[in-house]
Design a protein around this nucleic acid. Structure first.
Lengths: 225, 225
DNA sequence: GCAATGCTTTGATGGAGATCGAACCATGAA
DNA sequence: TTCATGGTTCGATCTCCATCAAAGCATTGC
């Protein structure tokens, strides 16, 4: 009856509202201090501290001490992918949020998911990649396809440089707003970097929202759609 | 501070051990009755019933009444994907978090998954079947391939006898330890039956572990690998 | 040295929910 | 009808854990 990895332990860590809010706040990929996270979680500092200790212990967070600050961050892309997957289910059955806040539509359109792009744009991009054999599905894995190398070098992303690491180059990540896959992994991160570096879009302050400029959007569509 | 869908609600549903075990049991894709799930969860029937009601309410499960039985199943692939993602994180932190008990490696190697074989052996078997056209993938489905009938009759499994039922003959089932597919469905069950009937392996008491004898292992490899 | 800031630990409190026995309801069989 | 079986509901108990105030460390700045 007790099979496999301890899924209940992990899930119950995410299952507390205060912790869930903290984790969501960290989905931007940024590292935050304990006080900031206490604010995000809506609890006092001692409570937050206790929660953070549990998240660390559970392997969901990492912490880096810097002077008298301690910066907390998601432990890795796997954790981010898991959170997105949970959001996917939650969005499907959600207690139908009475009224979606002003930031919600923007979130659906484009947002940061840990270190890569998510939202409608990202899903469309993924579709294009697969349709044009820039990426190919191979069972559960995703790989660079026949047309991949040429395409990415054309837009200025050096795929070869991504190799020397343990992290997979491509990975699919479930998008809660669209309920379909978008691209994560090293390549996904590189593409987001590119978008921000070219100033096609900018990140909203203290939020996961990514806003494209009109020109930037055209450039993005030309390059990736 | 409250971004996106209510992730805590969903996660806390999975966060209870009894519910987590039930959900894990349903990862096979099969539908189970309340009593079976009570057993899986390690709780009494009333408790299980309460849990199941919550899971239904949370949108993680669906239920179908059939006579005086009620069959519970995962609400959809999104839910399965979420559980898989959580397992990924849980397994990722496993090695350093807890020393794995003595049964854990054995579980990875071979275990019962509902009514069929899972674990490394099962995944290898599935690979072989697909490589030799004993089974073939047809979109999402899996079917008996050109070399299937001859192969299975050769090892003493009558594929034709499996037909008259609603349950699919072949089905793939995601393996948490290897993160790849193994064979479920009627055929998967028949193969496990064969393995146990021939005494190539035996089930450990009160556990899902399946232990092969040295001779049995060779016979199994000869027949299916 | 002393004070101030950032964070953690301690301790006490309260509340949510997991659990089970027993009663209850529904379906199918005799 | 009556009995048996599969499930749910009820009620009472109990354990766990989220919470915060206050005290305790640790690091920086003066």
């Amino acid at each position: 009856m007790k099979d496999g990895p301890d899924i209940a332990r992990i899930a119950s860590l995410v299952g507390d509202p205060a912790r869930a809010n903290m984790l969501t706040a960290l989905m931007t990929g940024a590292a935050l201090t304990a006080s900031e996270l206490a604010l995000e979680g809506g609890v006092t500092l001692p409570t937050a501290s206790s929660h953070l200790a549990k998240l660390i212990d559970g392997g969901l967070l990492t912490v880096a001490a810097q002077g008298r600050h301690r910066y907390y961050a998601l432990a890795g892309p796997q954790v981010a992918a898991m959170l997105e997957a949970i959001m996917g289910v939650a969005a499907g059955v959600g207690p139908k949020r009475t009224r979606l806040g002003p930031r919600e539509p923007a979130m659906r359109e484009a947002r940061v998911c840990y270190d890569h792009l998510a939202g409608e744009h990202a899903v469309k991009m993924m579709d294009t990649f697969l349709a044009r054999d820039i990426l190919v599905r191979d069972g559960r894995e995703i790989r660079i396809g026949p047309n991949g190398h040429s395409h990415f070098t054309a837009v200025g992303i050096d795929v070869e440089k991504l190799k020397p690491s343990r992290r997979p180059v491509c990975r699919d990540c479930l998008d809660w707003s669209v309920r379909r896959s978008h691209l994560a992994g090293q390549l996904g991160a590189a593409i987001l970097d590119k978008i921000l570096a070219e100033k096609w879009a900018r990140r909203e302050k203290d939020s996961r929202v990514v806003t494209f400029s009109p020109k930037g959007r055209r450039a993005f569509e030309k390059a990736f759609l």
